[in-house]
Nucleic acid binder design. Structure first.
Lengths: 348, 348
DNA sequence: GTGAAAGCGCTAACAA
DNA sequence: TTGTTAGCGCTTTCAC
């Protein structure tokens, strides 16, 4: 018995297997890692010993020695948010195909948590990190990368060639939403905005689409991050009081569209008769709202998968950072329709 | 340069810090693990060296030597399913409080995947495993536990005292759903069942409630696991053709309630006028359906948290396995109402 | 308050 | 085809 060392594990280790099978440790290791190099009879004997003793490989020792982990990290806002949950699932599936497991880190838009988890993942020696970064700059992410842990950024274009990134073209998404309403004949639009980079890009797309059409007006209303029922209802109130009355409203996401829809209906403003409503994301509930919500779909599962593909490519010899940009897709449902031309309408 | 060893890491290690700070490795280790035992000036010197060299602890080495990991595993059906996503979040939050990270494993009701992930987690030397087990028996789970990895079972009562478990009293849930309809005055009920242990318990609850009321009839219709639109619609067709006509339908979960609701409405059967509909789970979309769905809420976030509490308690000295049973809660919304007494109604 | 030394379980270079 | 050996980076016991 050594005078040092941690609590003696009851688990059989590789040395014990070697003993029982009557071979050396390297042979056991070879049975595990290069089975073909071992003679059939020897291999069988070793495998028998493993089965008999219920051998379980020690991943920590393996990682320490081989220098490479079988885990990747996935940092996102919140797994319980269906958008991120599906993204995570895409990542998990692709990682599993590469025989990697996924550490899940919900960061909650808190920079402190992000730093904390980055550090933990780094200490863990993860094979790589998928991250939906929060906060303005990417310095801490770049530091981690500089110290040797591959990082792929999701949901934020990185511009330069410093990092791989997978993202959705939200500007296009905004354009699609606005163009849909304009094509239907709407002239007075509202964009209900939130806070955040990706949301700003949607706004830019909406603006662009409106700008290219003549005689169209866009009113922008911004609700704070994590706005509650009342704050959103105040926004609906503002929408209801706008003159001339808007006939098309674009919400920066589906989540917000729900209370907006309810607020409008409660005020006797029918959707889509009086106001056409467009969401963003195509979350599962969008299709079952009444009326079913027209929205812009971001391919979240695919985004997670693609980001993982990028991460895996980082391990290849002559890797060059690149960026994948997904195109969102307009999903037309019953919450949008052509505007009624009413009373004061001069045209037609 | 040694003739052996893995690719030389560029990361500074504890030995290098010791060198730079002019102390021994044990002192550096103490700065990390028992800061109070080190003299202030020494500690400062060591910390400076760490900051300067961008030192990151090697978790693998730590785990190998100390024998204890900072990771727990969470095995569930599918993270992209909102029920499990919120459960996972509950677990993640509680684990984070104990300074543990969470490995996420979506098992997809596939026993093979379950076995695979169990093995991987075991090799990883995780601190413990939370599992929503699939398949009939728990032998592989018990084996893992026997080899020294703590396991907590979620969503399945284990009866004996072999394992900790956290679960929801689904029998009570079934009773609540049925009793609600019975209390409203419904006499002809349908339970739309799926496959699975927890679903069977809901069924039992429904049966019990109906059995305690006189002159009430229950029809059970079962749809296969992962039923598609058409299979569910076939079930709706059967419901529509039942005579005497049922006035109350309980779906085994909210997911199924959506196509059922749509199927009923498409056939001109109004909810709740002609049929009252009850779901199960209270998923986020239940509240925004038209009409908003009466359902039975399972506290999923809390379930994840509680399971984690059980897992953490496993590490304590004189631990005894126990089981936590959550009570589900009836959430009454607009999809249920008293039945209309129509034509052939003799009573009243 | 600090240091020397042993060794966790494994892999990989090399020798046999 | 198999065995010998060194050592990954850390913690821990014990001596000073």
């Amino acid at each position: 018995m050594s005078r040092t060392g941690p609590r003696p594990s009851s688990r059989a280790n590789l040395g014990r297997i070697a003993e029982v099978a009557g071979v050396s440790k390297s042979t056991v290791s070879n049975v595990l890692n290069n089975p073909d190099v071992v003679a059939d009879s020897t291999r069988a004997r070793v495998q028998d010993a493993m089965a008999e003793l219920g051998y379980v490989r020690n991943g920590a020792a393996r990682q320490l020695r081989a220098g490479t982990s079988r885990i990747a990290g996935c940092m996102l806002f919140d797994v319980s948010n269906p958008y991120y949950a599906e993204l995570a699932r895409g990542a998990e599936d692709r990682l599993a195909e590469a025989d990697l497991m996924m550490l899940m880190c919900s960061v909650d838009v808190e920079v402190g948590k992000q730093e904390h988890y980055l550090r933990l993942l780094e200490e863990q020696g993860v094979r790589g990190i998928l991250i939906c970064p929060v906060g303005g700059d990417l310095t801490s992410v770049l530091q981690v990368q500089a110290r040797g842990t591959s990082v792929v950024v999701i949901g934020r274009s990185t511009g330069g060639r410093e990092l791989c990134a997978a993202d959705v073209d939200d500007r296009l998404g905004g354009r699609l939403a606005a163009k849909h309403l304009l094509d239907l004949g709407h002239r007075e639009l509202v964009y209900l905005a939130g806070e955040g980079l990706s949301i700003d890009r949607r706004r830019r797309g909406v603006r662009e689409a409106v700008a290219t059409a003549a005689n169209r007006r866009l009113t922008e209303i911004t609700v704070p991050r994590r706005a509650d029922q009342f704050q959103i209802d105040a926004a609906v109130e503002r929408i209801a009081e706008l003159r001339p009355r808007p006939t098309g409203v674009i919400c920066f996401n589906d989540h917000t569209a729900v209370p907006v829809l309810q607020g409008l209906q409660r005020r006797g403003i029918a959707v889509p008769r009086d106001i056409s409503l467009v969401g963003y994301d195509d979350l599962p509930f969008a299709a079952v709202l009444s009326p079913p919500l027209t929205t812009v779909r971001r391919p979240r599962y695919e985004l997670g998968r693609a980001a993982t593909v990028l991460l895996l490519s980082e391990f290849e010899p002559d890797h060059e950072h690149r960026e994948i940009l997904f195109e969102p897709e307009l999903v037309v449902r019953a919450s949008t329709a052509p505007p009624r031309r009413h009373r004061a309408s001069v045209q037609l």
